[in-house]
Structures are given as C-alpha cells and as structure tokens.
C-alpha cells in the first residue's frame, strides 16, 4: 500500500508515528489503573444531587409557609414562675476514636517522615515516603508525601542523587505541577546525572 501514498501523506504518517499519542501515556499507567480497580467502589453519584434537592425542597416549603400561611393565634397565658430546677449535668460520653482510619494512619506515617527530615535522616525519610505511597497510593495526603519526597531530595542536593532518584524527583515535581523547578534542577545537576534528569523530564514533563 505504501507505493500509493504521496510525499505529503508519507510525511504526515511519519509525524504520526513519531508523535504517537500512546507515547504520551505516563509511565506506570497500568499499575495505577490496577490500583484503582482494587479500590472500593465510590458512592453512587445521585446521592449528592438528591440531598441537595431535599434540602432545597424543605427550605422552599418552609419559606412558603412563613410567607403565605397566617401564623396561628395563640392565647396569651400568664407565665408561671417556678423555682429553678437544677438538673444534673449529663455524663460526658466518650466518643470512640475511629480505629484504623487511613487518614490518621497516613498522618502518623508522614509525621515520622517530617521528624526524620528535621534530623537529617534523609534515607529513612525516603523509605517512609515509599512506605506511605505503597500503602496509600491514592491517599488523602499523597501530595504532602510528594512534598516530603521533594524536600528529601533537596536535602541530598541535585549533584548527589542517583539516576533512579532523579527520575523519582522529576516525577514527584511533575505531580506537584512544578515542571519548571524540575527543569531548573536538571540544569543544576552534575553532568553525570544530567542525562537521567533530561530523560525523566521528557517522560514526565512533556505532553
């Protein structure tokens, strides 16, 4: 079939192959989809609108009553003043803390990471971030974990990171929407790491 094509068509097809949209899929997509498939199903979407509709209806009916229905005439009765009755204060009921709450767990993990970073224990802090990401890939504090990862790499210094770390660093920065910072760090990195940085930049920061 190729002999039937014109030069313009061949060029367009070459461009299409070079810029195949599938190449723009971020690395790890299959793992992310798999992780999502293991997550519990979300609540059905119609719950939210139903609640809003119920609130709107009750508010409207209340307003209609207040505006259009005459208030009932109540006979005025003299108030009987009686001695105040002192009631015993109710026993405070202890609210049990939610056990195994993922948010609390997440926060606990990341607090430890923050303390380790303060002490300068970068390797331990990175291990903590890894543990958090492994346990809660879609956690509420995912961005905070990424922030700690970036902070840890910053403490290491751009010239001291390995190629694998450079990729992780750029991935974390791109997830935080900080591709320009990633590009700046790539420029600042040592020549040995620069190639790894640039490769990661192409992977994570190009469309």
């Amino acid at each position: 079939m190729s002999e039937d094509t014109t030069a313009a068509e061949r060029r367009a097809l070459e461009l299409l192959r070079q810029h195949d949209p599938a190449l723009s899929v971020r690395p790890g997509a299959a793992a992310r989809v798999e992780a999502r498939l293991h997550r519990p199903a979300k609540k059905p979407r119609y719950v939210g609108p139903l609640v809003i509709a119920a609130i709107a209806l009750s508010t409207a009916s209340f307003a209609a009553k207040a505006l259009f229905w005459p208030a009932p005439v109540t006979p005025v009765t003299p108030r009987v003043v009686s001695a105040p009755v002192v009631q015993a204060a109710p026993e405070p009921v202890a609210v049990p803390a939610p056990r195994g709450s993922s948010l609390l767990e997440e926060a606990r993990l990341l607090e430890r990471v923050a303390q380790e970073l303060k002490k300068g224990q970068v390797t331990e802090a990175l291990a903590g971030v890894e543990a958090h990401e492994a346990k809660y890939p879609f956690g509420v504090l995912r961005l905070e974990a990424l922030g700690f990862r970036v902070q840890a790499f910053e403490q290491l210094g751009a010239e001291n990171v390995t190629a694998a770390m450079a990729e992780q660093w750029v991935a974390a920065l791109s997830d935080l929407g900080r591709c320009s910072d990633a590009a700046r760090l790539a420029r600042q990195s040592a020549p040995a790491q620069r190639e790894a940085f640039n490769r990661a930049l192409k992977g994570f920061c190009s469309p």
């Binding site: 367009a12 461009l15 299409l16 070079q18 810029h19 949209p21 723009s24 791109s174 929407g177 591709c179 320009s180 990633a182 590009a183 790539a186 640039n198 930049l201 192409k202 920061c205 190009s206 469309p207």
Partner: peptide
C-alpha cells in the same frame, strides 16, 4: 492545554505532537 510549563528542549516536540493530535 497542560498548564505545566515545559522544559525548553521539549517545547518544539510538544508543538509538533499537539499538531499531530489536532490533525488526528
């Protein structure tokens, strides 16, 4: 458009990729 700024060397590539996608 992706709001993230691109690395300078990726800009030209990105423009061509966007053009191909638009054509598709």
């Amino acid at each position: 458009e992706d709001p993230r700024p691109l690395a300078p060397d990726a800009l030209e590539q990105a423009a061509t990729a966007a053009l191909v996608r638009a054509a598709l």
